[in-house]
Design a protein around this nucleic acid. Structure first.
Lengths: 213, 213
DNA sequence: CGTTTAATACCCCAGTTGGGGTATTGTGTA
DNA sequence: TACACAATACCCCAACTGGGGTATTAAACG
């Protein structure tokens, strides 16, 4: 029996996951937390074979949580659960040492297969994610630059734009010159292949660079 | 035993919901569809006491589905399930005849209470939603205008803006003059209390006016 | 120890945006 | 019928945006 820890903020989804697995599935969720901070202590209390980690959580998101527990010396195989099909998250999750990535609109058999694969320390990608990974490395080979890797500063600029600030306001807020803000914005727009700030914000939200509400 | 129909596109969430209810809960999900279009035939095939309707679905969203089945003469009590805490959705769902509204981060007991309440044809609001409803009517009393009721045309303009179109491109796409586009955009920005198109798009996405990729 | 990259800053400039007006038409509703 | 409102269109104009450059500095990386 594979013993799983579920890190997921949506209670209803978590409840569902817990009661979903039958004895014949060979999987059981032995612990659940809505809070990334509680993860380490749960990993100590229970004998966990695999972590099921939601990416989209407020306060402490899945990728950050993963980074944190790896840093503390835990090395549990981890399956990332998300609604986002974005390469950004896949890439970040892989960098932090996740073994697998599955979308929330996957089927139960797919999830079971994913959990079994990951708990055996093999990599699992949901078919829909696989396409993205393929595209990613194909583009990477071409452009060397690796899609759209935004710097922290650039993400900061995007957040300001999304909050309705213009160049001058951003310059004041970040204590830099208006020229610099303009340069950043232009670089971001090039990287993301968009033509207006409005489209920039849309893309950023879809890719999870900006958190929702 | 309350017999429920679940309309939900995320397979994993649906699977979870199905296996979540125990006999002592007095609730069972007798049918599930990922597709709003299938709802009417399922309502005919099964004896359904309550519909659990996800709002955030591609192709045919929950509110549209609800409108469609009401139009076809079905009058099942319906509980809307969503991640959005936005007043816009609450309002639309109510207008289309939903009996209740619950967020996906509710707890299992809350969900059970909601289903029981709605199936008895009483109204149910999740506490978090209740605040919004209260705010809404309080503002409504003040301003008479009712928060930010965007016209269909205005929503169309927003979608174009989010796709990176400028006034000229939107004017061409919608076969109207550039002046008109400008007027619309200005009206929208007033209604939504934002100062830039970028912020406009952010707000629109948070309120669900624009669907996510 | 060179090379790359992020962050910073500046120049130029056409074109768009955002804010202030006003006005006509059609539709729907009180 | 009369009033309200959505959609349309136009005027003016200061300010900002987006696209084209170039360049310095410091940090990161092989």
């Amino acid at each position: 029996m594979i013993q799983a820890l579920l890190v997921e903020d949506h209670d209803l989804f978590a409840e569902g996951m817990k009661s979903m697995f039958q004895p014949e599935d060979g999987i059981t969720i032995v612990a659940h937390t809505k809070n990334g901070h509680e993860t380490p202590s749960l990993l100590e209390e229970h004998q966990i074979d695999v972590i099921l980690m939601d990416i989209d959580m407020p306060i402490l998101d899945g990728v950050t949580t993963l980074k944190m527990i790896k840093k503390r010396g835990f090395d549990h195989p981890t399956l990332m659960l998300t609604m986002h099909q974005s390469m950004r998250f896949v890439k970040e999750a892989l960098e932090k040492g996740a073994q697998g990535y599955i979308l929330k609109d996957a089927s139960k058999p797919e999830l079971i297969e994913a959990i079994r694969t990951v708990s055996a320390r093999k990599n699992y990608f949901h078919p829909k994610v696989n396409e993205q990974v393929f595209d990613y490395f194909r583009n990477r080979g071409k452009s060397q630059s690796g899609l759209n890797e935004l710097s922290e500063r650039e993400k900061e600029i995007i957040k300001c734009l999304a909050e309705g600030m213009n160049s001058k306001a951003i310059a004041n807020a970040l204590c830099i010159s208006e020229h610099t803000v303009k340069t950043h914005r232009r670089n971001i727009m090039h990287k993301m292949h968009v033509n207006t700030s409005a489209e920039l914000v849309r893309q950023a939200m879809e890719q999870g660079i900006i958190e929702m509400g």
